[in-house]
Design a protein around this nucleic acid. Structure first.
Lengths: 182, 182
DNA sequence: ACAGAGTGTTCAGGATTTACAACAAGCCGT
DNA sequence: ACGGCTTGTTGTAAATCCTGAACACTCTGT
């Protein structure tokens, strides 16, 4: 996480000098210089002030990244899926786990009693899924639902959520999450 | 942009006390307190250290929506899915079709002879899917594959692609595409 | 009621960051 | 070569942030 290089790249992309950006942002040029050289770690408020001169939000600033992947495999046999299981819940990722993929497409199996945990999951993005076998309990934003086979769900991942299988049969779920965060 | 309230919400969602989070993050509890009360604007390095104790990235931190509005439907019965069929291929969208959703999660049925068309599909994003019934032919980048039940796929949508069912049984597919373009 | 362990807040002092100003180096037109 | 402009990089003093140690409060078990 190189804040300095990141800022310098963006500034030059915008064709601004340190002084020009400083003037627009309402800070001094030395501040910009020291931030770019990583000789200081700016406070949120001052970094926000600096980005205001571009203009750019903090989210944008931290999410700037350009990567290239050379993933060529397209079709995966059932036994080729990558196992990223966490505890009792079996999760098999479809496609290679390169870090900057946008979709996490998973085949999940919840044996009886399986649970994603008492502290709710919270992250950015959206997720959707369909239950193809068994029954499964889903809690979103304090609301608890029971999914029957064939039912599906869709919600924003920023809402606290949790999956649990309190039933006697295993549940099989196909789900997609974006962005892929694991 | 209330950094303090944001941190407090996330911390409480994770069920952590100020001291507990401070310990995990390697800072003092007073730091957490003052950040949450907005009596200081933390430096990037210390905020990053604090988030490391959750753990959570800066991007997530600034992009998480901590609102608790929840009048949106989460669970959909099998017959509630929105039909967006195109030609012979039946496509049922999971979740309401609001314009700015990130994921298109679909339950698709390809009857024998069904085809997405001779001119290849090309668009932004990524897509993945799993075949849960029947057999299906998939062509990506000139390469043609035959998916058996249980097989799955994952590729970038910018590569020309096409789905076709030349077999005698209908094929059922669950797929996800991002961004949602339909 | 009390001790003990938990919670979040506050304050002085040391550490870090910022502003202001001076500095050296590069470029252009005369 | 020489100003006159720009660029980015330092010092030093002032402002801000972080730590460590208190403080007041709630809860639980004795």
């Amino acid at each position: 996480m190189d804040v300095g290089a990141r800022l310098q790249n963006i500034r030059k992309l915008k064709g601004l000098s340190q002084r020009e950006l400083a003037k627009r942002a309402g800070v001094t040029n030395s501040t910009i210089s020291m931030i770019e050289k990583n000789s200081v770690s700016p406070s949120i408020s001052s970094l926000k002030k600096v980005l205001g001169g571009i203009p750019m939000s903090l989210v944008e600033f931290f999410s700037i990244d350009v990567e290239q992947d050379s993933d060529t495999q397209v079709v995966y046999k059932a036994d080729e899926l990558i196992d990223i299981s966490d505890g009792a819940v079996s999760m098999r990722l479809i496609g290679k786990a390169h870090p900057d993929r946008a979709i996490a497409f998973l085949a999940e199996t919840y044996p009886p009693g399986a649970d994603t945990g008492t502290d709710m999951l919270v992250h950015e993005g959206e997720e959707a899924g369909m239950l193809i076998e068994g029954r499964l309990e889903l809690t979103v934003n304090g609301q608890t639902y029971v999914l029957e086979t064939g039912d599906s769900y869709y919600f924003e991942s920023s809402k606290p959520h949790r999956f649990r299988n309190p039933f006697e049969r295993p549940a099989r779920l196909i789900s997609a999450t974006t962005p892929a965060n694991f």
